[in-house]
Structures are given as C-alpha cells and as structure tokens.
Design a protein around this nucleic acid. Structure first.
Length: 82
DNA sequence: CGTATGACGTGCA
DNA sequence: GTGCACGCCATAC
C-alpha cells in the first residue's frame, strides 16, 4: 500500500491502514514499517494524523529531508497537508 | 498460544 | 501547546 504512494503524496497512517483494508490497523502500520525496513517502500511518505513527520528508520531528519526534496512543504516537524 | 512492544490516536487536565 | 493514560492492531519471541 505504501509502495503505491507517488512522489509528493503524503498519507497518514490512518489513510494507509484504511486503504490497506483495516481502518483500525493504523497502529500496526507503523509497527510493521519500522521493522520492515524495505527501501522499496517509501515509508517516509507516511505521516501522523497530526501532520507530524513521526519517525523513520533512518531518523526523522532524513525523512523530512526526503519529503522536502520531493516537493512536500514541511515546517520543522510539521507537514503541510495538501 | 500468550505476552510484550510500537514510526499511533484520542480525550482530558 | 504539553503531558498523561487508555485503547487499538499486527508482529516478534
């Protein structure tokens, strides 16, 4: 599911879980992503419902940097919802 | 199979 | 805005 996120897209854990199948599994989403450090999965495009970057296996800083590079506006730890 | 944990979310003070 | 507690699902051991 996360793999389907295109460049510049920013979905929340809830949205991902919802599209995945279980709208209530958003908690597991982050959990799985964390352990499954798969480069094929742009997990850095998944943010919290608060629009915060959340975390990242390589560090939230890297996550923010990647997002900004892709054209996502980020204010510190905050992400501008598109 | 049961327990513990987490890149979380929501509610309340 | 911040901190605390509770609840939820999937995974790991």
């Amino acid at each position: 599911m996360v793999r389907k996120i295109k460049k510049g897209e920013v979905l929340t854990y809830k949205e991902v879980a919802k599209k995945a199948k279980n709208p209530l599994a958003w908690r597991a989403v982050g959990n799985i992503l964390n352990k499954n450090k798969d480069p094929s999965v742009p997990c850095h495009r998944v943010v919290r419902s608060d629009k915060r970057v959340g975390g990242y296996n390589k560090g939230k800083k890297e996550k923010i940097k990647l997002l900004k590079k892709e054209g996502v506006k980020i204010k510190g730890e905050r992400v501008f919802h598109i």
